[in-house]
Simulated assay, not measured.
Amino acid sequence: MTAAYLAAFIVGGIAVLSALFLVDFGHGAGHDGLPFLSLTGVSAALLGAGAGGLISSWAGFGAVGSGLVALAAAVVLMLAFQGLLLPYLRRQESNSQKSRSSYIGLLGTVTLDVPVGSWGEVAFVDSEGNRVRARAITEEPDVLTKNTSVYIADVDADYLHVVAVPDH
């Protein structure tokens, strides 16, 4: 029986890591209806059953006791993943996507000259109040020198696209 728990632990551990790192866990099978039937939920249950069964059988609980501990550990770990870990990870995922596009329209200051045809650096405060430094490029005809006020007009994967803001 210990071999079965060991196999469940190994397969569950690999499946949990795969689900967290390789699969888009925020969407998919079971997410809309029965979240515990998702790949991550089943993987977490398998990992919990393997870990609980191994520990309880090593502690000498017997077949029935180990089975009950394995079942309880499976339920607890599945609920912990579905109720605590995955919502946190989904929130982080959506925040990182939102924050980059939310830079458009903000004002910043050049901290490293932005030459024509190359990149420099700008600093600004994002919508959540965090100070951000990012690489920037411009289509302006002249170099944007240090301390120039800029407007963030667009973003892409590598750079912020900025334009100079005239001083009044």
Rank of each mutant, 00 (worst) to 15 (best):
D154S: 15
I137K: 10
V76I: 10
L46C: 11
G41I: 01
G53M: 04
S18L: 13
L54Q: 08
Y88K: 10
G117Y: 10
S43M: 08
P87L: 07
L144A: 09
E140R: 03
W119V: 01
V42S: 03
V23E: 09
L86W: 02
L54S: 03
G60C: 06
S96G: 11
L79E: 01
L17D: 05
S18V: 15
E140W: 11
A51Q: 04
V11L: 15
N130T: 09
I104W: 08
R100K: 13
A51M: 10
Y159V: 06
L68A: 02
G41C: 02
A49M: 02
G33P: 00
V75D: 00
G33D: 10
S99H: 08
G83K: 07
A74Y: 04
V76K: 00
K98T: 13
L54G: 01
G117V: 01
T145V: 09
I55E: 02
V69L: 05
L6D: 09
T109S: 08
A80P: 00
A29F: 13
L46R: 03
D154V: 11
L22F: 14
A63L: 04
D142V: 07
E128P: 03
D113R: 10
G60K: 08
A44D: 01
R135A: 13
Q92K: 10
L107F: 04
V42Q: 03
A59V: 06
D158G: 05
W119F: 14
